[in-house]
Each structure stands twice: as structure tokens, then as C-alpha cells.
């Protein structure tokens, strides 16, 4: 199957300091892909760069193809058609993504006008249907509400309705539940799963929470210091992780069941992007690193079919 979106050798640097150091990633129609990693690993920057949402001082290189269309360097009008149209994005903080002085219904109607040419009564009726679909109680009444009159969970539902307004082929959700309470997080994850299946839409879920990604995604990419260090099916990543960093992340999570054990913390901290280690960026924190790890950046190698990791310790 042809990938929906295909990222090759994507690099981003801010003022000469690299933030993303060569990312390859395909997302196929209808699949749910999770991207995990800690602050600064580049998981959000990847998609901001792909959609041309980074400030002008960012130097972006590589290629991002959506079907036949190259997105990097594409003129603004064609990017405007893609963003909110074929590719929609929702963020961690819905309250700041919504306009505080415009009724939420009007904001959804604006997306409908821009991407589907709906106006007037047709747009209002469709906005109302979208509100119903994302489970907003009293949809007709809530169309007239302002963002500050709604809870964080309801605002995130509005954002999802607005994302669905353009009938996207791909929804990118960047930490969509991080600011929400546990019970509301469960509601939003359920909603995302439902809309993804109902619309046959592809989903990219960016999260620092491995549990959230495990919940929704069939394929997972683990990022560290601007690179993809492991990629595979969700069960491969969570049950038999191959990269020492992925193993470390999973061992650092406390369990909910079984006897309590001391957490296995990863020693040290993420390297400073301005002074990267010579070879593998994880080597200074890695228990199985040796002199060979400093010789060069390891490429992704196949662990088993569909599962790849960038570590020299993996038997080729």
C-alpha cells in the first residue's frame, strides 16, 4: 500500500543548532502511529516542520510527501489547503488553540467554509452534527458558547470537531490528553479511537506517555535527541523492546500491579543539542555502551520483521 505521507531525511536546525537529525517515517492510510520520547527529542518538531508551522528562522531540510505533493517549500496557499484539510492537528492546550472572543460554533463553521465551502445554515447544521459526533452535550446550545465557558475536556472535543470539519486523511494529535484529568483523558482517548475507526482516518499520536500510545496505536516510533531510535509494531516495542533507551523508558515506569520494585532510572540527562556525543547520542547514559558506540551514529537495523532499532548491540 502507498503511504499517505512519507517523510525522508527530515532535518531541522534552530540558529545552527540541530533539533531534528534525519527522520524517516511513513504513515499509511487508516493506521494509528504513536511517537514517544522525552522533552526536546523532536517528536513535535517533526510534524510542525512537515506542515510548515515552524518560525522562519528554523532551517528545514529533507522531504515530506503527501501523496504526489511535496510539502517542504510548498507555497503558502497550497499549504493552507493541506492544513485543516487533508491533514489536521490538535494540541495539548485546547483553550489557547481556540479564539477566546469568538463563539466555538463560529470557529468550527469557519473551518467548514474554508475546507468544504459550507456557509450559513448548512455550516451551522454540519457544525452541530460534528458536536454531536464528538459527544458534546447539548450541541445546539454549546455552539454559542465561548471557550472559557467550557471545561478542558469539552474544549478538546471542540478541537477534534474542528479537525474533523475538513474531513482529514490524517489527524496529528500532539499530547492531546496531557493537560486533562485521568477520567477525562480516558474519554478523549476513546473518542479519538472511535473517530479514527469511523472515518478510516490515519492518526499520529505524539505523547511522552507510553501508556497512552500503547492504548491507541498499532505502530510506534521512539525518538531520542532528534533521531528515531526504534520503530515497530506496538506489541514489539512494549513487550520486547530492542533499544536500550526504550528498555530504560519502560523500566523507569512504576507498575500498577505486582510487588513494588525499585525503579530503574536512566542515569544522567538528555544531551545538549549544541554539544552532541560523537556517536550514538544515548551512549553516555547507556549501560551496554562501548568504545565502538562513539565511532558513528548507528543506523536502524532490523530486529525482526517490521521491527527496527538503531543500536550496534543488536545482532545483525
Amino acid at each position: 500500500m502507498e503511504p499517505l505521507i512519507s517523510i525522508r531525511g527530515l532535518t531541522v536546525a534552530f540558529d545552527g543548532v540541530p533539533a531534528l537529525r534525519g527522520i524517516d517515517l511513513d504513515v499509511h492510510p487508516g493506521e494509528a502511529v504513536g511517537l514517544v520520547g522525552e522533552s526536546g527529542c523532536g517528536k513535535s518538531v517533526t510534524w510542525l516542520a512537515a506542515l510548515g508551522l515552524l518560525p522562519a528562522r528554523a532551517q528545514v531540510g529533507g522531504s515530506v510527501r503527501l501523496g504526489d505533493q511535496e510539502l517542504l517549500g510548498a507555497p503558502a496557499p497550497s499549504l493552507d489547503q493541506v492544513r485543516g484539510g487533508r491533514v489536521a492537528m490538535i494540541f495539548q492546550d485546547p483553550a489557547s488553540a481556540l479564539n477566546p472572543v469568538i463563539r466555538v460554533g463560529k470557529q468550527v463553521e469557519e473551518a467548514l467554509r474554508l475546507h468544504r465551502g459550507l456557509t450559513g445554515g448548512a455550516a451551522t447544521a454540519e457544525a452541530r452534527r460534528l458536536f454531536e459526533q464528538v459527544g458534546i452535550p447539548d450541541p445546539a446550545g454549546r455552539l454559542r458558547a465561548f471557550a472559557h465557558e467550557m471545561s478542558g475536556g469539552q474544549n478538546q472535543r471542540v478541537m477534534i470537531a474542528m479537525a474533523l470539519a475538513g474531513r482529514p486523511d490524517l489527524l496529528i494529535a500532539d499530547e492531546p490528553t496531557t493537560a486533562l484529568d485521568a477520567t477525562i483523558q480516558a474519554q478523549i482517548l476513546d473518542l479519538l479511537r472511535r473517530v479514527q475507526q469511523d472515518h478510516g482516518m490515519a492518526l499520529v499520536l505524539i505523547s511522552h506517555d507510553l501508556g497512552v500510545v500503547a492504548d491507541l496505536c498499532s505502530r510506534v516510533g521512539v525518538m531520542y535527541a532528534g533521531r528515531m531510535v526504534e520503530q515497530g509494531k506496538a506489541e514489539q516495542i512494549f513487550q520486547s523492546p530492542a533499544h536500550p533507551y526504550t528498555q530504560g523508558l519502560l523500566a523507569a515506569l512504576p507498575d500498577m500491579v505486582g510487588p513494588r520494585r525499585r525503579l530503574e532510572a536512566i542515569q544522567g540527562a538528555v544531551p545538549n543539542p549544541a554539544s552532541m556525543p560523537p556517536g550514538c547520542a544515548f551512549a553516555p547514559r547507556c549501560g551496554s555502551a562501548g568504545a565502538d558506540c562513539d565511532a558513528g551514529t548507528p543506523a536502524l537495523r532490523t530486529v525482526r520483521p517490521g521491527h527496527r532499532a538503531a543500536c550496534l548491540r543488536i545482532a545483525a
Binding site: A182, A186, A214, L216, F238, Q239, L250
Partner: peptide, 24 residues
């Protein structure tokens, strides 16, 4: 029960989750 079931855990099946309706 709902809080405990809502803890996202890698490797656990999400279908067992109790999803509460409504906001706090």
C-alpha cells in the same frame, strides 16, 4: 475503580477501561 482502570499502562488491554461520563 474508574481512576485505576483509566491508568494507561503499556501492554494492558484498553477495553477493560471504565470510562466515566461527564466532567468533574
Amino acid at each position: 475503580r474508574a481512576l485505576v482502570s483509566a491508568v494507561p499502562t503499556p501492554g494492558r488491554i484498553a477495553r477493560e477501561r471504565i470510562v466515566l461520563t461527564g466532567d468533574p
